[in-house]
Amino acid sequence: MGTPVLFIHGLWLHASSWDPWVEYFQDAGYLPQAPGWPGDGDTVAASRANPDAIAGHGIDDVVEHFAGIIERLPSAPILIGHSFGGMIAQKLLGLDLGAAAVAIDAAQIKGVLPLPLSALRSGFPVLGNPANKNKSVSLTPEQFRYAFGNAISEQESLELYDRWSIPAPGKPLFEAAAANFNPHSSAKVNTANESRGPLLLIAGGKDHTVPETVVRATLKQYRHSHAVTDIIDFPDKAHSLTIDSGWREVAETVLTWLKEQNL
Rank of each mutant, 00 (worst) to 15 (best):
L115F: 15
A119D: 03
L120E: 08
S122W: 00
G123C: 13
F124W: 12
P125Q: 02
V126E: 00
L127W: 04
P130A: 08
A131N: 10
A131R: 09
N132T: 12
K135L: 14
S136F: 11
S138G: 14
S138D: 09
S138R: 11
T140W: 10
T140Q: 07
P141K: 08
P141D: 10
E142L: 07
F144K: 00
R145H: 12
R145D: 15
A147H: 07
F148V: 14
G149D: 01
N150A: 03
A151H: 01
I152P: 02
I152T: 02
Q155K: 11
E156Q: 10
S157C: 09
L158Q: 12
L160Y: 01
Y161I: 02
R163D: 13
I166S: 05
G170Y: 01
K171D: 03
K171T: 07
K171C: 06
P172A: 04
F174W: 10
F174I: 11
E175N: 02
E175F: 00
E175C: 01
A179Y: 00
N180H: 10
N180V: 05
F181C: 07
N182L: 10
H184V: 05
H184Q: 06
H184E: 05
S186L: 05
V189H: 06
T191L: 12
A192M: 11
S195F: 08
S195H: 12
G197D: 05
P198E: 05
L199G: 06
L200D: 02
L201W: 00
A203Y: 01
A203D: 02
G204H: 07
G204Q: 03
G205H: 06
G205A: 06
D207G: 11
T209C: 15
V210K: 03
V214E: 01
V214D: 00
R216M: 15
A217S: 12
L219Y: 15
Q221M: 11
Q221G: 09
